[in-house]
Structure formats: C-alpha cells, structure tokens
Amino acid sequence: MRHIISVLLENESGALARLVGLFAQRGYNIDSLNVAATEDPTLSRLTLVTHGNDQVIEQISKQLHKLIEVVKVSDISEAAHIERELMLVKVKASGNQREEVKRCADIFRGQIIDVTPATYTIQLVGTSDKLDAFIQALGTTPIMEVVRSGASGIARGEKTLAL
C-alpha cells in the first residue's frame, strides 16, 4: 500500500544522505521524496512516498526514528490529510492543438506559465493521482518534458508535526 511519511529532521549536512542511505541499505522503496527547511531554519521537513506491507511500513518508521538527526516521524496517510504535488509540463502546442491543450489545462485547473509559438509550459498542482490523470488526458499532445516535485503533505485539522 502507498504511504506518505513526513519526517522532521535536523537541518545538518549528512542528515539527508543518512536517511536516503537507510532506504537503499534495507531495500525499502522510495517513490518520491522532497525536502526543504521549515520556518525554523534548524529543521528540515521531508515528505517521502513509499509502498510496502504493514510490517515493512512499521519497520521504515522505526528505522527512521533510530537515525540520530530525525526528530519526528509520522505516516500522515494513516489519518485525514492533504496531499499536493507540483508538476511542470512542457508540451508541443501549435495549430489546433494549442486550443485543445489550453482547454485541458483549464479543466485540471492548471496554468500556462510559459508560452512560445510552438510550446506551452503548464503548471499543475494536485494529488499525485490528479497529475497522472492530466498526463493521460494530454492524449496525443507531444510531451517534451515533465518535472514533478514528489508529493508533500500535511495532516488535516489541528494535528501537526512540529517540535
């Protein structure tokens, strides 16, 4: 099953390498990963999408906890949460296709953020599923480049992952 794991870790050199290394050493999957400093510059927030059975996910959580720089770990997909991923897609768009691509982007609430006579670059935010669906919906439109941030997530309501 797919899980979104949020990690609060010390913003120190080597901390990220240690965390990524853990996944490689122990054979856990990483579907996507993103990381950046938080409002507190000494802390980084990392969101990791992985999949595995319950036992594997439990071990991932425990092993992450064991890393000295890891402050907190939470599987946010265990409860109500919001998930967002950013995607930038550069497509060939000329002639009739230009209108078609724009319509499609509108339907998905995407924005065209760069334009040339032959291309559009579309920005889209949503769940990873929604981004997948948009790529499908582009159909025969030639895709030149796709950049995805990997999912970020946050718990709904008053629940937080903070110090």
């Binding site: 050199s13 080597g14 390498a17 240690r18 290394g21 050493q25 000295i68």
Partner: peptide
Amino acid sequence: MLGISRPICKHNMS
C-alpha cells in the same frame, strides 16, 4: 569516511 562508515555505525559526524 563519513560515506563509507554511514551504514556501519550508529552515527557519524565531522
């Protein structure tokens, strides 16, 4: 050495 020892120690620092 930080890279080499990372998977075989409890922690490492420089």
